[in-house]
Amino acid sequence: MSGPDTDPGTRSDTSRAVAFSDAIFAIIITLLVLDLRVPDVPPGHLLSGLLGQWPAYVAYLASYSYVAVVWLNHKAAFNRIQQTDRGLHWMNLLVLFSTALLPFPTVVVSHALQEHDNADQRVAVSFYALIGAALCATWLAFYHYLARRPDLLKGEAKNEFFRVERLRAVVGIVLYVLAGLAGYLVTPLVGLVIFLLPPVFFAVTSAGLYHFRLTRRIRHRTPPPSD
């Protein structure tokens, strides 16, 4: 394969990319919790104030779960990567860029739901869905790049893994687009419920959709223990 990235001087192991990415993920998760504050209520109303902040808790749960599965996906991917080149570094930085945006729409959704303005809530849910879909799109680009660069992968990883993983990213895009449309056109609550689905799907398949399908196939083929 020709091109500047075939130059050995542009390649390196994955240690620095993984360390840098883990630091970014840690910062993102820290930023998410900053929106959880002590409610400004008069004495004797702390319980009602805490309960009134439920949108902040839901937004935090959805975004924390999403960042958690992004980290798991990142770990699963880099466990199969032997070397990085400039293109892969840019793909990784793109994933980190979109992940780092999550605290912003999280705060927007939290505040809009607490203000009880339906129009703002619809916009906030749609905005969160847009960022979620954008993050899935960056993963799609990441997987697509690796599917075309098997020379960067470890020997045992040179199979259909990254080609199949693009399907996971497409599923995520579809779910977030559906959540945005439902939240804007129907009701914000429907969008919030759908927001919980992508993290669950990505968590179940965090080791990779290829691995998930292979594990299920092995389980179905394993005969039951004899008495």
Rank of each mutant, 00 (worst) to 15 (best):
M1H: 15
S2H: 15
G3P: 06
P4Q: 14
P4T: 11
P8M: 13
S12G: 15
S12C: 13
D13A: 09
D13E: 09
S15M: 14
A19Q: 10
A19C: 07
S21I: 10
F25R: 03
L32W: 03
L34F: 08
P39G: 00
P39H: 02
D40M: 02
D40A: 05
P43G: 04
G44Y: 12
S48M: 06
L51I: 03
Y60W: 08
L61M: 02
A62R: 00
Y64F: 12
A68S: 04
W71N: 07
L72G: 02
N73Q: 12
H74N: 12
K75G: 02
K75W: 10
K75V: 07
A76G: 07
A77L: 14
F78I: 06
F78D: 08
F78K: 09
R80G: 10
Q82E: 15
Q82G: 15
Q83M: 13
T84Q: 12
R86L: 15
G87R: 11
G87S: 09
L88W: 13
H89V: 15
L94T: 10
V95K: 08
S98T: 13
A100L: 07
L102P: 02
P105T: 06
V107N: 01
H111T: 01
A112H: 00
Q114T: 03
Q114W: 03
E115R: 00
D117F: 01
N118Y: 07
A119N: 01
A119G: 03
Q121P: 04
V125L: 01
S126H: 08
A133C: 11
A137M: 09
A137Y: 12
T138K: 14
Y145K: 02
Y145A: 04
A147H: 11
A147T: 08
K154T: 04
K154F: 02
N159H: 06
R163L: 08
V164W: 05
A169P: 00
V171L: 12
G172K: 05
V177Y: 10
A182S: 09
G183L: 08
Y184R: 11
T187G: 02
T187A: 12
L192R: 05
L192W: 08
L192E: 06
P199W: 01
V200D: 01
F201K: 00
S206E: 01
G208F: 12
Y210G: 00
I218Q: 08
R221E: 14
T222Q: 10
P223S: 10
P224G: 06
